[in-house]
């Protein structure tokens, strides 16, 4: 029986900018087996039923972060979600919420990429070491401080989960703030003062009201809500620290 083909209804929110004024639902009947992911269901549609359906995908194994979408109104990776979980009910698939739809299930991620660049998501050493001096060493305990936050695959499910980002796209958002924390918490990095400007800004961590859905939908257990809210503590400390110890280009 395991190989017997069943048929599931998949509804896709279509948006073709050249012909649609607004998105419309379109339904497809998709034969499937128990080992098929939602992504494979979409690939079946594109190959056999309707070649005009557009969606992003690459690795098929929850590491590239390309195939995020709203599956029955929940942000999920379509490669990591199986059709059998929904059968015999139908599935509704929509592009990730809170992001502009470019076409069908494809969203525009330019805003995210810009924010990601702004936090300098790479290690900026405290003091550069020459080749002779060797590598930048780190103990396992030091690594544990940021390791969880380094699992982010930039899939943007947390942005699709965050109503504060939907209401105000200026908000830096969960994913980028979690990655910011990943570098600030790294013992080899020396640029945290620079990144604190992003944390402290109106569009930084204080835009978060701890809805917590970002951590719920994260496919890599990064827990962005934790990164954001720990940085509210850091931001407060940073504020008082700068008040107590004024620095800068004072009147010399």
């Amino acid at each position: 029986m395991a190989d017997a083909k069943k048929t599931i209804e998949i509804e896709i929110l279509r948006y073709r900018p050249d012909q649609d004024q607004e998105p419309v639902w379109q339904s497809y009947q998709v034969p499937f087996t128990d080992d098929m992911s939602v992504l494979q269901g979409l690939q079946y549609i594109k190959d056999h039923l309707d070649g005009t359906v557009s969606f992003r995908w690459s690795c098929r194994m929850a590491i590239c972060g390309s195939c995020g979408m709203m599956i029955n109104n929940k942000p999920m990776l379509s490669c990591k979600t199986f059709l059998r979980e929904f059968y015999p009910a139908k599935i509704q698939i929509e592009a990730m919420r809170h992001l502009p739809i470019e076409k069908d299930l494809i969203v525009n991620i330019d805003d995210f990429i810009g924010k990601l660049e702004s936090i300098k998501p790479y290690i900026i050493p405290k003091a550069a070491r020459s080749l002779e001096q060797g590598e930048y060493l780190q103990t396992p305990a030091q690594r544990d401080k940021y390791e969880q936050f380094s699992s982010c695959i930039n899939c943007l499910l947390c942005y699709a989960a965050c109503p504060q980002y939907g209401l105000n796209p200026e908000f830096t958002g969960p994913g980028v703030l979690a990655l910011l924390h990943r570098y600030n918490a790294d013992s080899r990095d020396g640029a945290s003062a620079e990144r604190m400007a992003v944390v402290n800004a109106d569009t930084g961590v204080w835009g978060c009201t701890l809805v917590g859905y970002c951590s719920e939908v994260c496919p890599k257990q990064v827990d962005p809500a934790a990164a954001v809210n720990r940085n509210k503590v850091n931001s407060t400390l940073d504020y008082f620290y700068r008040m107590l110890i004024p620095k800068g280009e004072a009147s010399e």
Partner: peptide, 20 residues
């Protein structure tokens, strides 16, 4: 270009999901 990004409304967002 035929680009015409569509931005969905946030109206009633918190009624759309049990978590919200």
């Amino acid at each position: 270009t035929t680009r015409k990004p569509y931005i969905r409304s946030m109206q009633g967002w918190w009624l759309k999901n049990t978590f919200y």
